[in-house]
Design a protein around this nucleic acid. Structure first.
Lengths: 127, 127
DNA sequence: TACATAATGTTATTTTATAACAATAAACTT
DNA sequence: AAGTTTATTGTTATAAAATAACATTATGTA
C-alpha cells in the first residue's frame, strides 16, 4: 500500500469528498488555500493518483472521480454510467463485464492492458 | 441518407483518407488551403459528422476517425482498440459486445443511449 | 418573393494540459 | 553522517483543445 505525498493527499481528498467528477481547474481553485498554486502541481498529482488507481478520469468530461471500487489498486478496467440529464456519474464495477471484455480482447489477438467504458443515457431518477 | 455540406465534406474527406486519428488542429492546418480558416469551422463540421455517425471521437486522444462500420448511421455504440506502442486505432464492430452491454445497461435500470469503449494494449504487430 | 432555418465566416476568449527549469525533500549507499 | 541519486515540488510561460458571440451568406419552403 503506497502512501500519498502531501500534494497527492490534498488533491485526492477533495476528489474523494466530492459527489461529482471534478475538473482540474476546479480542483486547483479549491486547493489554493492549501498552498497548491499552479496547474502542473494539480496535474502531477492527478497523474500519480491515476497510476495508483485511486482516481479515474472520465475522458468524455475531462473530469476526475475517486475510485469507488475498494479492491481496484491499479485501474485497468473502468466503466462508468453517465446521466445526460443530471450529469451523475457512477462507477460500474461488474466482474462479468470485465471478464467478457478481457476475454474478447484476447480472442481479438490483443494484449490488452486496460480499458475504459463510458455509458451515456438517463439514470433511474431522470428517466 | 444525408448529404454533406461543403465544409462537412472537406473535413470528412481528410479524416476518411487518413490512416490514423486526426486532431482538430491538424485537420485545420490541412484544410486551410481549401478555405477553412478558423477552429469553429472545423469543430462545427466535426460535431455534425459525429451526430450523423460518419466519424467518431477517440476521447482519450482528442482525435477523430471515420466510421469503419458502413451500417453505423448514428453512432450509439462505439468501441476501439488502441495500441499503446504504435498508436494504431481500430474500430471494433462486434454485435456481441453491443448486445451484451446494452443488455447490461437495461438491467442496471439505465435508459442507455450510447456508449463508448476504449481498449488499450498492444496490437498484434507490436506485441 | 418573403420568411425561416441552417451553415458559414470571423475575432476573441476560455478551458485544458504540458514544457522547461530551478529548488527541496526523501531514499539509498558507503 | 556525508554524499549521491531519485522523486517531488514550485514557478513561469506557453501550447493545445474547444467555445462564445455575432455578423453574413446560403438553403429550403410557404
Amino acid at each position: 500500500m503506497q502512501t500519498l505525498t502531501r500534494n497527492q493527499q490534498i488533491v485526492f481528498d477533495i476528489i474523494n469528498k466530492s459527489s461529482e467528477p471534478l475538473k482540474a481547474y476546479t480542483i486547483l481553485s479549491n486547493v489554493q488555500k492549501k498552498g497548491i498554486k499552479a496547474p502542473p502541481q494539480v496535474y502531477r498529482a492527478l497523474d500519480k493518483l491515476i497510476e495508483m488507481g485511486k482516481i479515474h478520469k472520465i475522458e468524455s468530461k475531462n473530469a476526475f472521480v475517486a475510485c469507488q471500487n475498494s479492491s481496484c489498486n491499479v485501474s485497468k478496467a473502468t466503466a462508468f454510467s453517465i446521466c445526460e440529464s443530471c450529469e451523475e456519474v457512477t462507477e460500474i464495477s461488474n466482474s462479468k463485464i470485465s471478464k467478457y471484455l478481457s476475454n474478447f480482447a484476447e480472442k481479438a489477438g490483443m494484449e490488452y492492458k486496460r480499458y475504459n467504458l463510458e455509458f451515456f443515457g438517463l439514470c433511474k431518477k431522470c428517466k
